[in-house]
Design a binder for these strands. Sequence first.
RNA 1: GCUGGCGUAGCUCAGGGGUAGAGCAGCGGUUUUGUAAACCGCCGGUCGUAGGUUCAAAUCCUAUCGCCAGCUCCA
Length: 660
Amino acid sequence: MSSEKSDQSSVTITFPDKHTRTFPTGVTGFEVASSISPRLAKDALSITLNETVMDLDRPITSDGEIRINTWDTNDGKMTFWHSSAHLLAEAVEALYPGVRLGIGPAIEQGFYYDIDFGDTTVSVEDLPKIEKKMLELARTKSDFVRREVPKDEAVSFYKEKQDPYKLELLEDLEDGTISFYTQGNFTDLCRGPHIPNTQNVKAIKLLNVAGAYWRGDSDNKQLTRIYGITFPKQKMLDEYLHMLEEAKKRDHKKLGKELGIYMIDSMVGSGLPIWLPNGTVLRRSLEAFLRDEQIKRGYQEVITPHIANLKLYETSGHYPYYSDSQYDPIQVDDEQYMMKPMNCPHHHRIYGREMHSYRDLPVRLSEFGTVYRYEQSGELNGLSRVRGFTQDDAHIYCTDDQLKDEIKNCIDLTQYVFNTFDMPVDIRLSFRDDNEKKYGGKSENWERAQREIREVADELGLDYTIAEGEASFYGPKIDFIIRDAIGRKWQLGTVQLDYVMPERFDLTYMGSDNQKHRPVIIHRAPFGSMERFTAILIEHFAGDFPLWLSPKQVALIPVSDQYNELAYEYAEKLREAGLRVHTDDRSEQIGLKIRESETAKIPYMMIIGEREKANKTVAVRKHKIGDLGTFAFDDYLNKLATEVQSRTLPSEADKKTTSN
RNA sequence: GCUGGCGUAGCUCAGGGGUAGAGCAGCGGUUUUGUAAACCGCCGGUCGUAGGUUCAAAUCCUAUCGCCAGCUCCA
């Protein structure tokens, strides 16, 4: 921060609500917080001054906008967890003298520290004793003390300590910008900021140990990374651990198996998921949903083969550029063919098969296209990371003038899709940075595209962030990050602009000026991959799917064998109405049949016995809710059909049924 | 691919040098049932795979495959 105004005797601080106050120069964040309320001063962890997070006791020497960071803010948590990482390092140094420290940052959920334990292996069993030490140290209420040190001193400090990692970090730092933080007996090279003292840390959980390469480079030594999380209150930790357990219960690998969604079979091959009957119903329902919506929006569906001549990918540039993640080509007659890693080149050839007039554009080609990519074995994970998957892919070929409308249409479709599942969406505009070499296509196209994307986002009133340098090689993109029912974030759909492929495939259209022009391509996929999206859906709904997606929608449960006939009759009517029905005609007790339907997460049960036979009614029981009462069969059938058609979410359906 | 952990019956798990265990599921009977587990019996495993050590290996060692947590990468 510049201190050009340090000669002034006062600084003007602007608060988040835009009101301003004047303080003497050199006032600290703590003093500013105290001037508002003692409570705030007590809760404050750090301040953010002009987007820079600072210690509470750093003097403020220039005007600026301030935020006082408590636990309830993101910056506050980051400060808290970063300080907790130091606490972890202190505990580890105390318990394992002679360890070398790498880096220890705060992360989205907690923090980690990378540590070289030398010849000692540390496993999860060792974590409780480190936790205990951390708590002990936290209770000493040690202040975090910042000290700016000359580079020479920092270097000799770490030479003394024989820590090659910190020395390597120091190489990249300039004299005059180096600071140490000390708490208790522990000093660490650190930019800061930190919380005032260790006693705010009341609850500690070390979660995991894992190997991590120094600086993320697999040529470097692998350090031991200890992950942890801390809280200012024990209750918060309890809640967090509860959330972790909840997430575990929702794990799609567990539920996917239990509900018969998919299997992975070692004889078929790892990373090659097999969709079981229940999963296939679910997936086809999702596809039908998107397909219908795309048809309404003027898409044309195509089907392309799973392997293609290598020349196709040489033309697109995917080969050999991405050959690390592609399966090796196979020899077919005199030519080489490759498993399809992308659908786009096929679609480009479809576009290119005939002349297009500007009047025909946009051309929107869609495909549920299955692609194969080689993922390293350690990457594979259930349905969410696989080697063969199906993209809900589409490519839109349009003129520059149509681009804005098409982007708008894509964003609208994507939002429509995620709204249907009640998944809140964060939007990120991924633009290029100044590194020209990273990107293809003409600069003016990029600039226009980025401007138009932003205009569209503004016109739609979207709340978005811009990520410079996150664009793909061939164009800027819009990324959709959704949040699931337990608040986890997933990057899903993308809309990407492409100025490179039209050149590579020599795609043209005839303009009104009777000249050939290059179309712009939009790549977009709301779900991204059917496999990954299904994994997220399973976890989002915890397997309790909305009726329209449930593999089995209604279980018919006769009270005893005598009522089987009526159950078959009802089942037939439900099937005719398009519902997926299971009739449980086993000679089992009703309690068991209900229990099994509950654990299979079938949304509705219809119980049929003497009373129902007499009156042509059904007793309806709803999954997770219980007995809803008795209804005329035909009425309930219509109600269910409506619920499917409107794609009602389980939470909404519960409200409706419990209120009547 | 790398580091660490884990592979025992269809599933969930116990056992840790001396003849493989439980519950659930499955099968056969009995029970004909009113809103989350009826009763009896039976079947079921080369202890992931391959080597090795040993009189003897599910158990110890080595390799390998798979899974899990991370690391790296992701058009």
